[in-house]
Design a protein around this nucleic acid. Structure first.
Lengths: 188, 188
DNA sequence: CCTACCGATCGGTAGG
DNA sequence: CCTACCGATCGGTAGG
């Protein structure tokens, strides 16, 4: 990918985040890039390619992250801690792309959408395995594993709605707070 | 609101949920209603009215729900339990509208969007107050109140992504699971 | 609720 | 990277 193409992709991701994929026109992206709409097509195949790259690049990042965590750590609680930390770090380092990844994957074409859902399921499965390990090791309560994994991921994903790089909490601090919340809850 | 208008609104909410507000055309809605696009305009003022009604009707439901909870209960843990139950019940009884409420409010016009954000903030504030009460009463850990309220709400809101009325868990069971998770976390 | 139609904008192409 | 342009579709209106 050329520098210029990456530049266009980054601009597009920002617009997609702000307005949504469908409500962002090729002309909006062109304007942000300082060129005419037609000129974009010497760099990209079409609008959908920008969505596709965003969704699959993010999916790869998340999957790579969780695989690394699972390779390095053995204790389920530590695995969960590191998985949360990795997830939050990927989100906070790619806020625009993360929102698109979470919200606009529905606009992928049928074939790619199916592939995307498979990748997302594989990622969620890794979280389920960690929770199951924790239960087997006697560390975690005997919760519904599927339910717990979804709840954990949803509490993580929402941060893209309010996270900003100039906020009082760093990504690592947010991850630590979230991990503590997931592990011990509100109760004193 | 006439029956026919409510019918059109319900059909629109379903399409908005599936495709997103921007990617749903007036003709899509008309087709679902079994009429020509022009015929819709004897019932509605425009596409945006359908979004507006959806967002604000849901906002009112949530706010009414939390006010009722705060009026009836005094103990912070019980308040939280009932707030979670009410929230999950509203979500599960209005899945289509809930998704639109959560995702597509961005497409409201500037003025209405500002009003909407205020309502949402007011709702979140009620959750913050409950968490703060719990801390003051010595029931809850001394967490960051704003952070905790956001995390609680995010873990609740995600259920619209996978909830289906024929699933093995009822809305009340889901609410109970979520409450237990929020209160005590994973740790044994 | 319909037919007929509006101007605006859409994603994208041809040709340079 | 541009000008010029394409057919398709958009939200919506006029008039019945």
């Amino acid at each position: 990918m050329t520098n210029r193409k990456l530049e266009i992709l980054t601009l597009a991701q920002h617009l997609f985040k702000e307005r949504g994929y469908s409500a962002t026109s090729v002309r909006d992206i062109a304007k942000a890039a300082g060129v005419e709409a037609a000129s974009l097509y010497s760099h990209i195949n079409g609008k959908e390619e920008l969505l596709d790259r965003t969704c699959f690049t993010m999916a790869e990042r998340f999957i790579l992250g969780i695989k690394e965590v699972n390779d390095i750590y053995f204790d389920a609680a530590l695995k969960l801690k590191m998985a949360v930390d990795t997830h939050v770090n990927i989100l906070s380092n790619n806020i625009d792309a993360s929102v698109v990844f979470q919200r606009d994957w529905r606009h992928l074409n049928e074939e790619r959408r199916a592939e995307f859902i498979e990748l997302r399921n594989a990622y969620e499965e890794e979280f389920r395995v960690i929770v199951q390990n924790g239960i087997d090791e006697g560390l975690f309560n005997e919760v519904d594993v599927k339910f717990a994994a979804l709840t954990i991921l949803s509490s993580l994903n929402w941060i893209v709605e309010w996270y900003n790089t100039e906020g009082s909490l760093s990504a690592s601090e947010i991850a630590e707070n979230l991990y503590n919340f997931i592990l011990t809850g509100l109760k004193k």
